[in-house]
Design a protein around this nucleic acid. Structure first.
Lengths: 241, 241
DNA sequence: CGCTGGCTTGATAAAGTTCAAACGGGGTGG
DNA sequence: CCACCCCGTTTGAACTTTATCAAGCCAGCG
């Protein structure tokens, strides 16, 4: 009987498809990755916008986000990242990254050099495919966000985002019944959804008064999943391809 | 002296980095891809939203776009694609695509089976890297669009898009001085930028009256590149990584 | 207790939408 | 060759959604 030793990258491996997806050699290669692990406070930059791309970062615990800054203090959040995610996998084959990354909660992240990851991709087809898949799911999420930002009204955007986060959290075991942690503050939601925090506040109030959600003490409860999904025109298809 | 035979995929190969990037074996493999070539009229669906993903499509000539549909006739364009582009490379490792593709002009496209492309990726590191890079640039464009949709005003969005299209067209030799073909109709621009066509119309008028662009007979002339770039907060960095 | 950071609310303004109608120009059929 | 038609563009006026500015509130924490 095999002893299952806990490995820091276990969350990521599970996220990439679980040990069932990889050969023994691939599992070994993944677990042999030499990573630097760092613990960060909430609301801290992980990597600022525009630096050279040399490492990929893996979220081991906590929430992080990617963002871009414009002038006059404008900010657009590009994605949220949960444990197991590789937020800047999208920069693996770029010489320079065009976005910043920050923590939203206290978080633990691991850094892997691009060179190591590229070597893995060249040597192990299973790992290559898993990383391709991961990157393409994240592109699919980008597309869904574009549709929200471009064509959905404020309450639809919120509904859509809450549906997405609920399913993604459930997938990594971080949702509890119809309840999920909601560390995002209203200005964070605003910057993700292309709204102002004032308007997010009023729209949240609407959703609450309509009996769709309850939001207090940093926890979001989904009271009417079917209706929330309908309002957000949410179809879970895109989360897995 | 080697005879250079014209190959249908030449545009794509050039786009992926040119023959200098690939080994002889890789060039041979690329040119041996068996593709189905099809000529399409303007404003025709290439692939409708939500089908199973089995082939990748390569634009050989003309303009195409990716889109998502919402209810009440709402539509969001997700990207524009020019000759040499692989619009649905982002679906190569997904079982099902979450977006549709359509022509914007008369176009010629080639179809390659996913299986063939995946085999190339497994066998040829140079091709794998080139395709990764291509996919990641397209994700970078997605990010730039998210910032536009979420945080830029109408005239800024138009300015940003025009800057992007100008550089991309120039890169494939389709811009002429400061002039570029502009087959997009105002409703297309509107669906790309998350606006109404009426508002696009008024905003274009503003840009024209400010001496920034001239737009007639399906050609866009950029009269003041520096100012257009400034208005759109456009930084070309993201187009190459 | 009293601060502080985020939440809530109100009043007003701006940006963008909607509806509706007229315009224009290139292609087609009489 | 002209008249017509059609599709996209342009313009106007009224309306909605969202932003802005500003002040008060509340809860958790030192």
């Amino acid at each position: 009987m095999s002893v299952s030793v806990k490995h820091p990258l276990d969350v990521m491996i599970r996220k990439l498809g679980g040990s069932g997806r990889f050969s023994q050699a691939e599992m070994f290669a993944l677990k042999s990755l030499s990573v630097v692990v760092r613990t960060l406070e909430a609301h801290h930059d992980i990597v600022p916008e525009g630096g050279p791309a040399t490492h990929c970062c893996i979220v081991l615990s906590g929430w992080t986000c990617c963002y871009q800054l414009l002038d006059e203090g404008r900010r657009q959040l590009l994605s949220f990242h949960l444990p197991g995610d590789l937020p800047d996998l999208q920069g693996l084959h770029l010489s320079e990254i065009d976005f910043g990354m920050a923590t939203l909660t206290p978080a633990v992240v691991a850094y892997v050099p691009h060179t190591d990851l590229r070597r893995l991709i060249e040597s192990f087809p299973g790992i290559s495919t898993a990383l391709w898949h991961e990157a393409q799911v994240s592109a699919a999420i980008h597309r869904a966000w574009m549709s929200s930002l471009g064509r959905r009204a404020a309450r639809e955007r919120l509904a859509h985002l809450f549906c997405e986060l609920y399913l993604r959290l459930k997938a990594v075991g971080l949702a509890n019944g119809n309840t999920l942690p909601m560390p995002l503050r209203q200005p964070d939601l605003a910057d993700a959804l292309g709204l102002t925090s004032v308007h997010v506040n009023r729209t949240l109030k609407d959703l609450r008064e309509d009996g769709l959600i309850s939001l207090k003490a940093r926890r979001l409860e989904i009271l009417d999943w079917a209706r929330l999904q309908a309002i957000g025109q949410f179809s879970p298809r895109y989360l897995h391809g």
